[in-house]
């Protein structure tokens, strides 16, 4: 029974890791195709990736879009979460519902809506347009995370700060934000990963200057290519390192 269970778990691990293992292995392929037999190891495709101006530009664009859109989404989400948690606003439940609504709509539809809308108002396809789209998908997430973390306990600390003469702006900056740091970090980081990985919105809303997932997508037209493996392996490596960093920072103080 136990042996069968572990065998099953092993099979699932195999299934989960098979494509990633193949991806990484053939990124070191010495010949032109990432298919058996394996000739290598060779770093030629990594060299090719790093000297590819389009890919490095895509990388920089991706990081830029992810950082800026996540910062904006976290900031807007934080302000809104604070406002809804601390003030009795009429129609609060409905308004909160509106802010979280985009969570239930697929990225494809959000991207298409923006494409049509930007067409109408004459906003050009650009990284900025993609960034706006990323804020749309991440704002509800940030808001939900931060709103759920706005506790009564913090409200009392804010009252104490107000009592000591802090203005609302100072209060937010010097008291609330530092208190909410773990939740802010989690919201920002999650937004980063979603933005970093997002394809379809960037695909629809950018033209020449675009993000890394779209550049990788463009490479796929060339079919199976060890260079794509090399990019993929690099992205995987960076993401895993970031995930581990997140794990260490976010869960460091949590008792096991």
């Amino acid at each position: 029974m136990r042996a069968a269970a572990y065998l099953y778990a092993l099979a699932i691990y195999g299934f989960i890791f098979l494509p990633v293992a193949v991806l990484v292995l053939f990124s070191f392929q010495g010949t032109l195709f990432p298919i058996p037999p394996f000739n290598g190891p060779s770093l030629r495709w990594y060299a090719a990736v790093l000297s590819d101006a389009r890919l490095t530009a895509g990388l920089v664009n991706s990081i830029l879009v992810a950082l800026l859109s996540s910062a904006l989404a976290t900031g807007l989400g934080f302000l809104a979460a604070w406002g809804f948690a601390r003030f009795h606003l009429p129609g609060s439940a409905l308004l909160r519902g509106i802010i979280t609504l985009p969570l239930t709509v697929s990225y494809l539809i959000i991207g298409m809506g923006l494409l049509i809308f930007f067409n109408w108002i004459g906003f050009p396809k650009s990284l900025a347009a993609a960034g706006i789209g990323h804020v749309v998908i991440n704002l509800p997430l940030c808001f939900a995370i931060l709103y759920s973390q706005m506790g009564e306990n913090q409200a009392n600390i804010e009252r104490a700060a107000r009592d000591l003469g802090a203005s609302e702006a100072k209060l937010l900056l010097l008291v609330t934000a530092p208190m909410m740091w773990p939740a802010l970090f989690a919201a920002f980081f999650l937004s980063m990963t979603f933005s970093w990985d997002e394809f379809v919105i960037s695909f629809l809303l950018t033209r020449f200057d675009t993000t890394l997932p779209v550049e990788i997508w463009n490479m796929l037209r060339a079919g199976l290519n060890p260079k794509t493996n090399a990019v993929g392996a690099l992205v995987f490596g960076v993401s895993v390192v970031l995930a581990i960093v997140f794990e260490l920072i976010a869960f460091r103080k949590r008792p096991q």
Partner: peptide, 13 residues
Amino acid sequence: LPFWTSYVVRSYS
């Protein structure tokens, strides 16, 4: 762990 690969790359692999 492979969850963290880029979505496009995962399909490609």
